[in-house]
Design a binder for these strands. Structure first.
Lengths: 334, 334
DNA sequence: TTTTGTATTGTTAACGGTAACATTACCACA
DNA sequence: TGTGGTAATGTTACCGTTAACAATACAAAA
């Protein structure tokens, strides 16, 4: 019953030629005589031939697939990065193979091995820290690799990202400029980029002689976590008049919690997020946020890889993309 | 310079055995003598050997990868489906290959061909309509295929989904029960499932002697589209006192637009969404919505495929999952 | 010592395309 | 009639791993 799928040989047998002729017809019909063309096409249709990349991958070690390794697939932040990557790769005929590692280095190592075992032609990573084994694999794989998200990464790879620390510092300073004083930072995941944002926040607070307070958890950020943090902060630090969140989800969750409690935003408490998702820029009040060029980041990374695939060797290079501080309505007016 | 990656042969040469011995060591170290084990491991580490699945895929036509075909990757709805699928497949050692086709049948055909050309072991689809060529490929591929999202699909495949029509009908009826009368439907994309929801909405309106009004577009839904639709509806149908949206994004966008205009929700206008995203269930006011079991759907689909992969033939079967009408605060209290 | 068994390693072939080279057929032209 | 050229098709080998089978070595049993 499990009729296995037809091969070129099956098609060739049906027509009465060798599979080489069928192969030629598929890739370049001109090379085949008029008499055969129709017959071969008919046979292909009749058998429902499906191309098979495995032999080509085996003999040329080229899969025409690009591996993309992200911490999380469900996080909106990365959705936009993916969109950017695909916008560039797809027209070039490359398939994107997505994998995620849930912010764990060990899982990342496994995922790198998996993607490479499928002979991806190139890799896009989103962390600078890898296990030694992962590093060795990346070196040995002989494929272009690029890292995204963090322009301050110490990675030896070609890097495209933003300066999270300075972005957080600027946003914090903006909140301070707007009159907020007791600003608390809401963190989650505690990955490298979050730590950098915390650092930027602390720098700005210290520079203004203010005291830093960081709420943190290793679990994922969510609307409900933002709400939970807000409740806690209000009882632990009743004089809090500002919240800066490591991403928009937390900020929006916190904002809703304020609305439920009848707290005025921004009058009583200012709230800012990070990344500038659609919703942040549509909601009422407009959320103050750091708009990051996520799609652009993906697009540039993909373009760089394409160059690498066309032979140009990818030189170690750091491209820092600009972010944008959006004041919104959720922090006080100047 | 482009040192290509080490093969089993390279490792074997280094140790002074045949690649077969190395292959055995990798898959089952017990089969190799004590004396060799260390040597082989050392050689593997030294060369940074990366397994290569291509030969295996070629000879066994098994890639240990599952293809998942979705209309859109960035849509939150599918993010949860993916999470469910991976939650089941990953522990079993299967890699998920995601592809999206932007709601186009032609693109879907291409994506099916691509995924099959990589020898995916099974496929999860999310549409019931395919091009004839795509259908033929699916038949010939000889891999388990399952369809998700729509339990009323006429597809000949094994189907796991919900009844969109009845869900929309129920939600509309709920809004009517709560006192809303001039309810307008906000649609987007106009794919099969949206059409079914529109149908359900119309049924409920008709059953109550009310007039249906549908705002529609072929473009993607978004917060801004919801806001735009609301503006238009208010001028075209000033007596509108209810909005039912094909998904939460539109609903939230419409709700924000109401807040901006100072319209009272739900007193002056009731708003309901579809799918029950996190944010809908955290926001103020709580959004009335149809909560759909998206993660569960993915999980069940993956489980069914696993069974199919373990030899049990997948019998054509329709599994209808329950949805849940959540009244929220964005429609009037009873 | 010879036989038998077992543990370990080696050898061969196969998977399905395609590059590279070989062959065939047919026509034009000398 | 034979020669050369070209268009069309055929043949062979290869990519890296592993299943299946073969061979070897060495220890235990006869």
């Amino acid at each position: 019953m499990k009729k296995k799928r037809p091969t070129l040989q099956d098609v060739a047998d049906l027509v009465g030629v060798t599979k080489m002729t069928v192969s030629r017809f598929i890739r370049n019909p001109e090379q085949v005589s008029d008499a055969l063309r129709d017959k071969i096409q008919t046979a292909l249709d009749e058998l429902g031939y499906i191309p098979n990349r495995a032999p080509d991958i085996l003999s040329k070690s080229k899969s025409h697939a690009i591996g993309v390794l992200l911490p999380s697939l469900t996080n909106q932040v990365f959705a936009e990065v993916i969109r950017g990557i695909e916008a560039v790769l797809e027209p070039e005929g490359y398939q994107t193979m997505l994998a995620h590692f849930g912010y764990s280095q060990e899982l990342e190592e496994q995922r790198i091995a998996t993607l490479l075992s499928y002979n991806v032609d190139a890799l896009i990573l989103s962390e600078s820290q890898h296990t030694p084994k992962a590093q060795k694999m990346l070196e040995n794989a002989g494929v272009p690799v690029i890292e995204i998200m963090d322009s301050t990464s110490k990675s030896p790879l070609h890097v495209i990202g933003i300066d999270n620390c300075s972005a957080a510092r600027e946003m914090t300073q903006t909140m301070i400029d707007h009159g907020h004083r007791n600003i608390v930072y809401f963190a989650a995941r505690m990955d490298e980029r979050t730590l950098q944002k915390v650092e930027g926040y602390k720098q700005a607070m210290a520079a203004n002689g203010l005291t830093s307070v960081v709420k943190e958890t290793h679990s994922a950020s969510s609307f409900t976590l933002g709400a939970k943090f807000l409740e806690e902060v209000l009882s632990e630090h009743p004089d809090t008049d500002g919240i800066f969140c490591t991403n928009d989800d937390l900020a929006i969750g916190a904002l809703y919690a304020c609305q439920k409690k009848g707290l005025q935003v921004p009058e009583q408490i200012g709230i800012a997020g990070f990344h500038g998702h659609d919703i942040a820029r549509a909601m009422v009040p407009l959320l103050a946020t750091v708009v990051t060029p996520r799609e652009e980041m993906g697009r540039l990374a993909a373009k760089a890889l394409l160059k690498g695939l066309q032979g140009e060797s990818i030189k170690k290079q750091v491209i820092e993309l600009p972010y944008q501080i959006e004041c919104g309505e959720s922090i006080k007016a100047l």
